[in-house]
Nucleic acid binder design. Sequence first.
DNA 1: GTGCGTGCAAAGTATTTGCATGATG
DNA 2: CATCATGCAAATACTTTGCACGCAC
Lengths: 145, 145
Amino acid sequence: MSEDRLEDFRDFIKQRGLKSTRQRDEIASWFFKLKGHLSADQVYREIKKKYPGIGFSTVYRTLKLLCEAGMVQERHFTGGEALYENVSTHHDHCICTSCGKIIEFENDQIEGLQEAVARQHGFELKNHKMELYGLCSDCREAGKS
Amino acid sequence: MSEDRLEDFRDFIKQRGLKSTRQRDEIASWFFKLKGHLSADQVYREIKKKYPGIGFSTVYRTLKLLCEAGMVQERHFTGGEALYENVSTHHDHCICTSCGKIIEFENDQIEGLQEAVARQHGFELKNHKMELYGLCSDCREAGKS
DNA sequence: GTGCGTGCAAAGTATTTGCATGATG
DNA sequence: CATCATGCAAATACTTTGCACGCAC
């Protein structure tokens, strides 16, 4: 299925009058296989292993393209650098403030209420971000000692 | 009531063994009167009007202190710079992706579900962030033309 | 007085951009 | 062969830090 996504990305590129290149394919296809959240720098380093010629700016530019295509999402959690993640099944995040662990979850009931809230305020909801911050069970244990 | 908050902030400073200064009072008291979301730069410029000697770093340092005191919260919406906001009544945000308008809202039902979700994953919920992105009514109108 | 706070300028990060060269349709 | 994409380095945006001097306790 990550092949399908690559196809979709290529279509998007074509529709925009842009060109397919080795770099774009390389980054996109590798990224599609991923789960989790990566910084631009991490992507850069990974791609560099298979394709040492890659440039930093190409990674940024391609990630931005992928975002515009709606296939990848940029996240700003605590701050600092942006993290990128595949948009596939939608989910939200539960983040441990102590160890940084990130758990993904989904809750249709909440999603429904969000729709309702947005509508109440005259918004046409496109997208959302929900992050729950707290202590995970491990850290809670550790803290007790 | 913003006087009370200033008192609280001073207490916090004293407890930490730090010192009260004109700059800190100036920034804190002005910020407490505010509603909405401001960047460090906006705060800097505002304070500069009343107190031209103020430095950029002092603003950053004081905002950070206010955050540590739990009286102000740093937010990272779309990206780029951090926005600061008073922590008073809790609320979440609805953000227009076209004009950047930010509407605040609160929904107890969602809050309750968030608690439940966190617990399901073994988390002790401390805090959360929820942002709904979409088109506000004005921009929806404008887009139709 | 001592030590923390301040303002400035310089250093850091994270990301974007200009430009000459190279690849694609 | 006209464009667009790339890689590099320089530029930018935002934030933090080092340091000499000044102020609060």
